[in-house]
Amino acid sequence: MKKSSLTLVERLTIAIPFAWLLTFLALPLISVAALSIHVVADSIPPVAPLFSANQGHLALHVSMRGFQMVFEDPLYFVAFRNALVNAALTTAGCILIGFPIAFAIARSPARRRNLYVLLAILPFWTSFLLRAYAWMGLIRDSGPINALLLFLGIISKPVAILYSPTAVLLVMIYSYLPFFVLPMYAVLEKLPADLLAAASDLGARPAYVFRTVTVPLSMPGIVSGAILVFVPAVGEYVIPELVGSSSTMMIGGILWEEFFQNRDWPLAAAIALVTFGLLMLPALLLRRRLGQLAAVS
């Protein structure tokens, strides 16, 4: 596009998202990157300035110690692995539970759909912490879930769900489910009914129609929902902290610890950057795949 063909209004329209990205994405990222190469110091803030004047010479104080630790200490590798596995399981759970919910909403009568969507996001109306504590009450050894299982005779002594990876997964799927259901519903709702009718007219049974038409055409929704769940799930800190076991460390918790307890800001910044890199790679791959799918639908 030629520059001269843009009016002032058009330039402003383009400038606003750019300014947004610069202020809220690029600047924080740059400052985190800068922090990650600082040298730790026993001061407030707990890092030495990058530059200092020393006998008329300008001295530069940088260190790659943070990155070195992230890549060399197996503690961080395990924490990354735990977080990725947990996020992957959360995403899988959200797809398995969220797809049928979104499908059911999209197939319900038009006048009731908005109500169902509202119900799906209703938990957001109350504090997240409150809901997490409610879960803790539900799944603790003397909680109603164990009581019910005991009463039904399915178990003979309480199952320790709370403070286990299972509890983390359970609460995470519960918390992130709406982020999957909404984009999924948006795509399924727009799925042309003609295509499904045509498939069954051509002799396809419902299960075959679902596999060959519904699922492929809802891939954009599955992919964007999965990104919305997976990306924040990797860095999730609160849920593992509240209901998880202290032996299964996740990278979100480690980061919090390095920053607030150990006051090792450069290391915390390095962890944040590596996490960011880890997430960008699959997100970019998925975006490309999503672009291909969007092109055909």
Partner: peptide, 12 residues
């Protein structure tokens, strides 16, 4: 068999 008004070709 029915040919739909929109033709209903599978885009994928």
């Amino acid at each position: 068999n029915m040919m739909f008004q929109s033709y209903a070709l599978f885009p994928h």
